[in-house]
Structure formats: C-alpha cells, structure tokens
Design a protein around this nucleic acid. Sequence first.
DNA 1: ACCTGAACACCGTTCAAGT
DNA 2: ACCTGAACACCGTTCAAGT
Lengths: 201, 201
Amino acid sequence: MRSRNAELNKSRRAAIIAAASASFVQRGFHSTSMKDICAVAAMSPGTIYHYFRSKADIIAGIVDDERQWRNDLLAPLAHTDDFLTSFSAILDEIVVRVSDSDLALQAEVIAEVLRQPDLQERVRANDLETWETVAMAIRSAQASRQLNPDLNPDHAARLVVNMVDGLMSQATFHGLDQISDQLPSMKSALARMLTGQGEGK
Amino acid sequence: MRSRNAELNKSRRAAIIAAASASFVQRGFHSTSMKDICAVAAMSPGTIYHYFRSKADIIAGIVDDERQWRNDLLAPLAHTDDFLTSFSAILDEIVVRVSDSDLALQAEVIAEVLRQPDLQERVRANDLETWETVAMAIRSAQASRQLNPDLNPDHAARLVVNMVDGLMSQATFHGLDQISDQLPSMKSALARMLTGQGEGK
DNA sequence: ACCTGAACACCGTTCAAGT
DNA sequence: ACCTGAACACCGTTCAAGT
C-alpha cells in the first residue's frame, strides 16, 4: 500500500501497534478482539485494516520494535575494550529495562510467529544478527588477550546468547526478581567459561 | 466431574488431548477451531465439553504430559556417580527425542499458559522440580569431589537449567540440526564451569 | 453419566458508501 | 487515500433432548 501521506501512515501504524500491544499483554493475542483494539486505538475496523493486512500482521511491527531494542542494548559491545565488563553491564541493563509486560508480549509473539513463515524468518534474522555482534566482540577480545584464544568465537557467542535466552525463559516463568539473584553466579560462570584455559575446541 | 466409568474417562481425555495437540501443531492454538478438534477426535462438541471445561483447559493435560517427560529424562541424575557424563547423555537424548512438533507445541503452551494463573503455577512447579533434581545431583557430585565444592549448588543448578532452556529457545528459532552442532562446545563449557576452581561464591 | 447437534452471542474480515 | 459501520462467514460454548 503506497501512502500519500507518509507522516500519517507512520503515526497511525505506531498508534495501532501500541493499542494492540497493550491489549495483547492484558488479554493475550487470541482473546483480544479487533473490537478491543479498535476501542483502545479509537478507530474503526476498516481503518485498522487499511494499515495492516490482518490481526496477525500487527505482530510484524512488534517484532521490528524488538529488533531495534536489541541492537541498542548490544551496541556498546562493538566498541568496548573490556568484553566481560561490558557484557556484565548489558546483563544488568536487561533486568532494569525489561518489564513483565515485555516478557508476556514476547511469549505471545514467539507462539504467533512460529506459523507465519515470513515473520519467523524475520525473527531468525534478528537472532543471527545478535549472534554475529557478540561473535565479533569475542574475536576482538581474543585478539587483545582478554579471552581464551583457544575458544571458537562462533561457538562461544552461541553459548553467550544461549545463556541470555535461558535467562529470559526463567524470567518468564519465575519473574524478574528471581533472576537478579542469579546474575552474580552467571557472570562468574561466564568469566570462567570464556577466560579459562582448556579444551576450547 | 466425578465419572462413573474411570477407564472411559481416561481414554477419552487422552484421545482429545492427542487430537488437540496434532491440531495445535498444524494450525496453532488460536486458529484451531473446536470443530477441527471434533473432526480429528471424531466426537461432537458436547462430548469434548463433557471432558474439558474449555478449549484452553485442554492445555493443562498437555502440560502434565510434558512434566512426565521431563522427569523420565532427568531420572538417571538421581543415581549416577558421574554427573558430567550423565548430563552429557541427557543433552544427547534431548536432541534425539525432541521433535520440531514438540517445540512448536511447547511455544504454543507457554504463550497460553501465561494468562491462566493456575496453569502458570503448574508450569512453574514443574520447573522448580527440575531445578531441585539437578541441584541434588550437583550436591552429591560435590560430595564425591567430581565438581568444584566452592560452587553454590542451587546457583549452579539454575545455570545448568538455564543453558538447557536457552538450547530449546535456539532450537525453536533455528531448528534442531543447528543445535546439535552446538552440543560439544556446550558440554566443554559446562565442564569448565562446574569443575574449575575459582570464585564460585 | 454420556452423547448429540441446533442455537446463542461473538469473532476477524470485507466492502459499499462517504470525504 | 483515508475512514465508516453494516454485513458475512465463522467461532467457542451451552443446553434441551436423547440413551
């Protein structure tokens, strides 16, 4: 859909995404009706369908917001000269910046995304981007002898991303409070994993 | 609902859960209609509502199956005298026994569970049970000097469960093939984390 | 108790009609 | 292009009626 008024298009889409996100968190994706979203956004159904192909399509916008958020969070890794300290700060920031609503919305999105092939590809691409960012940071930290140079940087990056994914899973089940207690031991385990000499493959 | 015929009750419930699971994997929870489940199970809507309070309630049965599955998987940890080898075998078994359908169904369940408080409590309890099992195995492995005795066993267990959760997340996005490549480096990282001396808190 | 299927209130989406 | 709201095909759930 080519829009005549690009400004309006952008602000309307943002308003619809905001209204839908709030509704999804409260009631869940599939028990939020279009009428609910219409009420929160103060628009008629026809207007929403003018900006989005379907209710499911609204989620694509949410996924793109999430990508932006991740990139901002990881940006410091690209220029740091102390990988472990930077990464530790990122973990702390996750606990501060992620809310229970974010976790609920994220769970909603993942389930929905799994049966929209083009959306799934988008989420997968976001994840690969994150991995690549971490792998590059690890490579340069190895070059400056901060991390064990025997480690395969791609595998190590996967492990690091894996642990953050696991942290989010546990936050989803047990709440964000619970996982802050876990951060210190997680950081020292990471340090041991990434700096220790040994069979790094 | 007190049933007169406990046998029938059990087999009907199992048949409905099987029909529903298959449908949820194919079409997703919220685009599976009761009519779909009726067709696959070859029952009328009234019959299904005789055994389950609602469409969402069917998921409780799926969660209980998942709990059984986890307990079976982790059972060897209770009696092993070699924690790392046992755990490594469990990781291998996950890759063999988990299918793409299982991952899709699991994602569906998590999103749905998050807004049914009693179901959420059930999932949380399953997770705590897993954690407790791993923590006990770690404690006895520390007693026999297999693992670093300075580690806090509860925190170490959280880390181990965390990494498995992370593995499942990544399998959901990138497929099970991708994660088998990751297993060797994950195992050696785990070994380094759990055996190495250091600031274990 | 167990089962049927028509009936009820409601859903996502479309589209003729307006500006 | 942008917006409205009635209309359409369909949904989860109930319930009178049967055995």
